[in-house]
Design a protein around this nucleic acid. Sequence first.
DNA 1: TTGTAAGCGTTATCAG
DNA 2: CTGATAACGCTTACAA
Lengths: 334, 334
Amino acid sequence: MSSKVFVSAQEVAERAGVSRSAVSRTFTPGASVSASTRKRVLEAAEELGYHVNHLARGLMRNESGIVCLIISDVATPYRSALLRELTQQLQNAGKIAMLINTDRSDGSVDRALQQAIRYRADASVILSGHPDKSITQLCLRNGQRLVLINRDDDQLGPLKINLDDDESGGRIATAFVRAGCRKLAFANSEAGTPSLMGRERGFLAMAAELGMNVIVERYGWTGYEAGKVLAQRMLTRSDRPDAVFCATDLLACGFMDAARHQFGLSIPEQLCIAGFDDIEQASWSSYNLTTFAQPVSQIAAHTVEWLSRPQEDAGEHSIKLKAELVWRSSIRGG
Amino acid sequence: MSSKVFVSAQEVAERAGVSRSAVSRTFTPGASVSASTRKRVLEAAEELGYHVNHLARGLMRNESGIVCLIISDVATPYRSALLRELTQQLQNAGKIAMLINTDRSDGSVDRALQQAIRYRADASVILSGHPDKSITQLCLRNGQRLVLINRDDDQLGPLKINLDDDESGGRIATAFVRAGCRKLAFANSEAGTPSLMGRERGFLAMAAELGMNVIVERYGWTGYEAGKVLAQRMLTRSDRPDAVFCATDLLACGFMDAARHQFGLSIPEQLCIAGFDDIEQASWSSYNLTTFAQPVSQIAAHTVEWLSRPQEDAGEHSIKLKAELVWRSSIRGG
DNA sequence: TTGTAAGCGTTATCAG
DNA sequence: CTGATAACGCTTACAA
């Protein structure tokens, strides 16, 4: 039993000698209160330490101000950067973020979405995993907005934000051959998400166009350790690649470390590497990785903008963003 | 105007042909409902897509299930790792995390705490910054629990979790002299938080005890770039150190990169380095940094345990945790 | 501009 | 075990 001691509008009203509606109006932007009562209310509120109860307000207004962020692997550089942007910009827009961690188990995202419903979140932003269609339908039916970031495109969640992964893959293939590389490779994880596969697809397509074969290996999740394993596999091959596009920066870092410290290769002289995400570590001088920058700030901005629209302007919408190529020194020339 | 369409207990009750209290009881663990009504209710709920409204429940029970996490620099490796643990364990305990980002501006934490009050969070966990005493008092008076992690000890927030920073500093000083180092240094940021200063203090004290002087430099915030600058400053000195304890791993990474790539020093042969936090990058083979592991999992576990206690057992409490020394190869010997 | 009164979706209390 | 009824703290017609 927790000690109920929060100050209510009632108490403030009594102290200020006004009605409780006057108090309510004082804290409702755009409501009509005279300057004098407003002042009296504000003083009383200050003295008592009153703060509007958003739970109750949400109940009445049918709008909680809560946005639910559904994400896995928060401790990963790219994910946490996205999280930072999102929470920050949400806050600036007067909303508040709820964070739900998912794992790779079945139904994990669905359970998260149910929590979002229970707390009557105004919206859910899905940054990981793939929710079941039935539950996204439930959200939408309940008037909860849905944002899918770098997720499958076939979902009918109103706002979908994706990158031009295919094109990025193509650009890197071009850069590699321009740098004089002869044996191209793509290092991917087994996660098989649409964005990862898009990069692979685009890379392969452009390489084919340029008349080059590509070695493809897939292993583990998109982490540093997986990158090392992939390097192990690829660099011991008889047809060893001289240019590797890694599906994420984390993979690239692991790949580079293995290439240098275990195989004694120098980058970019003997091996060109590219990554994707532009995590902070990509700019560290041990890596200096040429990579594509996830437009995290834009992603967050689009999300918040769409969430701030009035209901009627917030229909299904798909946004394609461009990942900027950041040239560093893991590819020759440039 | 959002389209109010959430299903209510009322509707479920009608469909199931029972009273709304029966519905409520069905979703309240430990309430007494007959198996048959329970089944009827559950079916109706399933068909209608009903989910308990936690806003309303929180209003009645005076307990929202919300725990507010107040944090800055979420995109930083150590911070995001702590966040992951906390949200995960909170979830497992049936609670939900709200995330509020703070910056270094005045009153940032205080504003966050006010949000926590507005949403009637059961507790707030402060991982960054230093709230004003008046506002923490307000929280406590309102029955909101407070957890301070690696914060000032003089706050009277009920649960305080801290590390033995002093001792860690001492252990590293010992390790350095044991490795045969002669010129010790401490690289710190200007943030001046208690934990950072504790590490410095402990390091200096033990060094003095061992009859050694220590060069101390402080610069910027605790990031990679600051580490590079600190290296610049320290390694150009006439009395160049041969062992540097960096207040955080991020500083250490920057320091190492500058030492190696700009000054051509080899680690640990010419320069020994130690860090603090044991971020993921510390284990990457470009760094192999000897460092202290933040017991993030323990921190989260203690927090959640304390938050799950009944009110009367959750009095002021201070926990001191030990940071485990992780030996890698940035210090000779070992 | 102000106050009164109804209602949001719950849960707790109390008869039956 | 079940159902009515009264809160919880707020917003919002509606009337004054």
